[in-house]
Computed example of a mutant assay.
Amino acid sequence: MTSSQAPSVDTVRTALSGVRDPEIHRPITDLGMVKDIQVQPDGRVDVGIYLTVAACPLRDRITSDVTGAVSAVPGVTGVRVALDVMSDAQRQELRRSLRGEAEEPRIPFAEPGSLTRVYCVASGKGGVGKSSITVNLAVAMAARGLSVGVVDADIYGHSVPRMLGATGKPTRVEKMIMPPQAHGVKVISIGMFNPGNKPVVWRGPMLHRALQQFLAEVFWGDLDVLLLDLPPGTGDVAISVAQLIPNAEILVVTTPQQAASEVAERAGAVALQTRQRVAGVIENMSWLELPDGSRMEIFGAGGGQVVADSLTRSIGAEVPLLGQVPLDPRLGEAGDDGTPLVVSAPDTPAATVLREIAERLSTRARGLAGRMLSVTPAGR
């Protein structure tokens, strides 16, 4: 091969602009990750790549993506990728390019003008399937092409990573935390920082700080939807969320039985005190569909509608019943396997209802209703 047939450095760089960092989801050329490019006369190309940190968990994927992109350039006969690590100054510059000049991390979802819809999935009591609902809604929304994140805010009972099949670990770059992904959903959980399934024994201030870090220090990118899986009840985390993200909306999960609906009403009524909007009620375990097509209402009937009607009266605004999810053993099994039901068995009645709820929450107009507006009445 003659030198005239070898590609130019600019051509190789253009090809590299199509390679995105798998955590930040921006071109590596824009992030300052391309160290150097050398093209030999015989078409062999040596590419130097900066990793953000030495222990980057996705180094093999980056190497593979770079090799694939450069190999596709006409005239390239071989590719060698050499990995290096960014200096402290380079990481600081990367953080500034992503987060701006602010020294202290800010919560982007609480900023004026944020278009991210934030849903807090709440329940009055445990055991109603709140985490399963959260995970399936997130994956269903991501399948619709939305950029979705999940915060496992149930610090004591964290379970979202397992249900989502998220086995990766977060990566810290400067003051930013890069969250792992699964099924197209970014996720963060205290379980990722707490090896060995050790119990978390924290009081209120520590819970608040952990939640604040998840919201401010994690690099979420431009999310369309953020779901927070709250712990059951009306304790510290629910109050912290209201303080940190005042525009967050509440999704109340309940089962049909009367006892569950009564405590679910209390969870939703907290929105009156925190001045948050209740987006709706989801009834889980509504009935078991039998082989002959009939329904067995194992946990009673009507609890979800009772909660929706009660909250509508107490709040003074319509709180809809978003859907009734049938009881399906595969919903729990799919969570144990790390493959949510909307992926593993998308045609089941439960998965169909969950996708319909996700569609309703995804397509709701982003108007000004329910938002805190920074305006001051003018004097006469």
Rank of each mutant, 00 (worst) to 15 (best):
P108L: 05
G233M: 02
L146E: 13
D347T: 13
S8N: 11
V307P: 06
P205M: 10
V47P: 08
V252F: 02
D347G: 03
A15D: 11
L331M: 09
D42C: 09
V45M: 09
A15P: 04
E249H: 03
R380F: 05
V73A: 05
L327F: 10
G191A: 07
Q258C: 13
A69S: 08
E283M: 03
T67S: 15
P195I: 08
D347W: 02
R295L: 12
T274G: 12
V319L: 10
G204K: 12
E356F: 04
C56E: 02
D292H: 06
S131T: 15
G157Q: 06
D236I: 08
D347N: 12
E101F: 11
A102R: 15
G43F: 04
V76C: 04
N284D: 00
G124N: 03
P346F: 15
I188Y: 05
G196D: 07
K175V: 08
I107Q: 08
I357P: 00
I190F: 03
K186T: 07
L31S: 09
R117F: 01
T29D: 04
Q276V: 08
V270C: 08
E174K: 06
T348C: 14
G191T: 04
G379E: 09
L228S: 07
G184E: 08
G235K: 01
V160F: 01
G280H: 07
M86E: 02
G323N: 12
V342Q: 12
G370F: 07
S64T: 07
P195Q: 08
L164F: 09
G18N: 15
A378Q: 03
I190C: 00
F299R: 02
L227T: 14
L321F: 06
F219Y: 15
G100F: 00
H183V: 00
S344N: 08
E318L: 01
S159Q: 09
D337S: 13
I188T: 04
D36Q: 07
R95K: 15
A54V: 03
G235P: 00
E359K: 14
V343I: 14
L322F: 00
R313W: 07
M141S: 14
A264C: 10
G48H: 07
V307F: 04
S64Y: 00
R117A: 08
R95M: 15
T363M: 02
T274E: 05
E359M: 13
T352K: 06
V187Q: 00
S97A: 11
Q90V: 03
D229Q: 09
L251E: 05
G129D: 11
K125Y: 04
V73W: 05
V53P: 02
A143S: 09
Q305E: 06
V237Y: 03
V241E: 11
T352W: 01
Q273E: 11
T2E: 01
A259Q: 14
A260T: 01
K169L: 13
V253W: 07
S114Y: 02
Q276R: 14
L230V: 00
I357N: 01
N136E: 07
R96N: 08
K35I: 06
L361D: 14
M33V: 10
R20A: 11
E262M: 14
W202Y: 13
P7V: 10
G75A: 05
S71H: 10
D224E: 12
D328Y: 08
R275C: 09
M192P: 01
D236A: 10
K175E: 14
A308H: 10
V375P: 02
R61C: 00
V325P: 06
V66M: 01
A166C: 11
L368A: 13
T77Q: 11
